[in-house]
Simulated scan of single mutants.
Amino acid sequence: MHDALLIDRAPLGTGLFCETWTLNDPASRNALTDALVDALLNACTRAQSDTALRGVVLRGAGGHFCAGGSLGGFAKAIGQPLDAGVPDPLVPLNRRFGSLLQALCDLPQWLVVAVEGAAMGGGLGLVCCGDLVLADAGAQFGAPEVTLGLMPAQIAPFLVRRLGPAAARRWLLSGIRSGAVAAQQAGLVDEVIEGAMDGAVQAAVQRLATTAPQAIAATKHLLLQVQSALPLPALLDDAAHLFARALRGPEASEGLAAFTARKAPPWNPAA
């Protein structure tokens, strides 16, 4: 039996690492089974307290990213009404995937999503969590739920965050597929890769490895706050506290000293 999620930990420098999390069920185009969702949630929980981990690359095995949710656990419920007064077991199952998307967005490390082949339904939701999204030129994106008599329940808020309400509405209500270039134009994809994805991922990791880890974590927190319903004065207050904490911390001292001396800061692998 194969592992639903493969985790490869590679060194970036002395005591610093980047992990690649690979969705690992090529036969199903890496469909989101309960086991895969649990494995990803566990990986996110561990990463939250891993101070040596600088970043994560999320990708799929076998030439595809993720074909969406697996209906295996829901098969017996399809078309079957629920008895009156009985809690629906489908609710927590579906909600758990939303918890995963939130956990991926909340990672204090940078998250690179590398898409090859299909990124559909729940796979599209995973893409929306990336800080940097790379897509092979032949990649395909879509939310086909409404064409199947379903709804994109947990991914909808994340697609709205990523694309904005109007573009998300077009994607979610049409069920159409979009290629990599169209996805880039919509704001879902950051870079379309014409060559080898491995080289593009490595180049992205090298760029991001020059950033300071605590500064990345604080900036990601602030960006999530911007997307919340927090009133602007409260948001700016939070930003001021984050800035003061960063300026008084060791990273600012080391980073500014390195800049003055024209040297690489200690978190940069080139240091």
Rank of each mutant, 00 (worst) to 15 (best):
D131V: 03
Q227A: 15
G179Q: 02
P81H: 09
N42R: 15
P11S: 06
G122M: 07
S99K: 14
Q225V: 10
L101M: 02
A257G: 09
A84H: 10
G187W: 09
P152M: 06
Q202D: 15
V181R: 12
G121V: 09
R262M: 12
A43D: 03
A200E: 03
Q102H: 14
L163N: 01
N94K: 09
A10M: 13
A257C: 02
A31E: 07
G149W: 01
D25K: 08
E254H: 13
T211N: 12
A229R: 13
A39E: 01
L104T: 07
G199I: 08
G55R: 09
D131R: 08
D8F: 03
P81C: 11
G85L: 04
L93K: 15
A261V: 05
F243C: 14
D88S: 05
A139Q: 10
V91Y: 03
A67P: 01
D34R: 13
A61W: 00
L100C: 03
A234N: 13
P233I: 05
G72V: 10
G98P: 01
F243W: 12
V226C: 09
L124E: 00
L224E: 13
N268C: 15
N42Y: 09
Q206F: 02
G73V: 05
A156V: 05
A27K: 08
Q140L: 15
C129A: 14
D38N: 11
E116S: 11
N94C: 12
A27S: 07
A212H: 08
D83C: 09
F243G: 08
L93C: 11
W267L: 01
G187N: 03
E145R: 00
I78P: 02
G130Y: 00
F259W: 14
R245K: 09
